[in-house]
């Protein structure tokens, strides 16, 4: 079986500074890969390189066996490579349902539709309703996102990605800023994702990482220092020294 996502030798330099240093990753269908590392390790940069938001200095990204390195971000997204943002980026003038609808419009390739056709509207409404229900946001559907609590905004952030029915989902700290009491809603939603989907998530909360990850990649100074199952990573001396040692203060 071909890997969903294959990153080879991916490199990004700003001047002399290598923020991403020859990174290799392989994401199999069904994998839940946690990307961990200290602040400034280049985790978000790596996500930006994979999605095409940033142009890589070298290396390649293959999506379902196909080389997408030369394709711009929207084309990669249209092929099922979807990400969320660390700092919530919602459509601020719109309601919750409208925000999800923008995702649905793009998933169903209707962004040029200048007529309101009943069949099209129904398909969009269904896709939106499904994700609203999944994230338990149905009674918030008509609330402007600007009025939501931050935790709920994070859910909408995730919802926009989910409505895209991604093949590969890149989550940049999905639960950041969410109160502990609500973070389980987000993680449950991630847990409920279709089996064959590949998920990469950046996360600082080690409880969440060890609960959900099937695979952990440790990034330090732009380079992968270690990859393995949660138990392998927990036992790794080097990781304990550079990462957990630092996190333990």
């Amino acid at each position: 079986m071909t890997a969903l996502l294959e990153v080879r030798n991916l490199t990004k330099s700003f001047g002399g500074l290598k923020v991403t240093n020859h990174v290799d990753l392989t994401l199999e269908p069904g994998a839940r890969m946690a990307l961990i590392g200290p602040n400034g390790a280049g985790k978000t940069t790596l996500v930006n390189l994979i999605t095409g938001a940033l142009a890589a200095s070298g290396g390649s990204v293959r999506l379902m066996g196909e080389d997408v390195s030369a394709l711009p971000e929207p084309v990669r997204a249209a092929r099922g490579l979807i990400r969320t943002f660390q700092v919530t980026r919602l459509f601020g003038s719109m309601t919750v349902a409208e925000n999800l609808r923008i995702g649905a419009i793009h998933r169903q390739r209707r962004s040029y539709a200048i007529l309101r056709r009943t069949a099209v509207e129904q398909a969009l409404d269904e896709a939106v309703a499904r994700v609203l229900a999944q994230l338990r946001l149905t009674d918030r559907a008509d609330t402007p996102v600007a009025r939501l609590a931050y935790g709920e905004q994070r859910l909408v952030e995730l919802g926009i990605a989910l409505v895209m029915e991604p093949r590969v989902l890149l989550l940049d700290e999905p639960a950041a800023g969410v109160p502990q009491s609500e973070s389980h809603i987000i993680m449950d939603a991630i847990d409920d994702l279709p089996e064959d989907l590949g998920v990469v998530f950046i996360e600082h909360d080690m409880d969440l990482v060890f609960r959900f990850a099937t695979e952990i990649v440790v990034l330090v100074s732009g380079a992968v220092i270690c990859t393995g199952t949660p138990s392998e990573i927990a036992a790794n001396e080097e990781v304990r020294r550079v990462y957990f040692g630092e996190a333990a203060h």
Binding site: T51, A53, E73, P74, V75, A77, A78, I82, R83, F85, R89, L90, F91, G92, S93, M94, E98, R101, I102, G103, I105, H106, R107, R110, S111, Y112, A113, I114, V120, L124, I160, M164
Partner: peptide, 20 residues
């Protein structure tokens, strides 16, 4: 859908790009 997409681009063009 076209009109809503245009509004979404006004709100956050980068986010729309990330959705394809």
């Amino acid at each position: 859908p076209f009109g809503q997409t245009v509004r979404a681009i006004r709100d956050d063009a980068g986010r729309v790009g990330s959705l394809g």
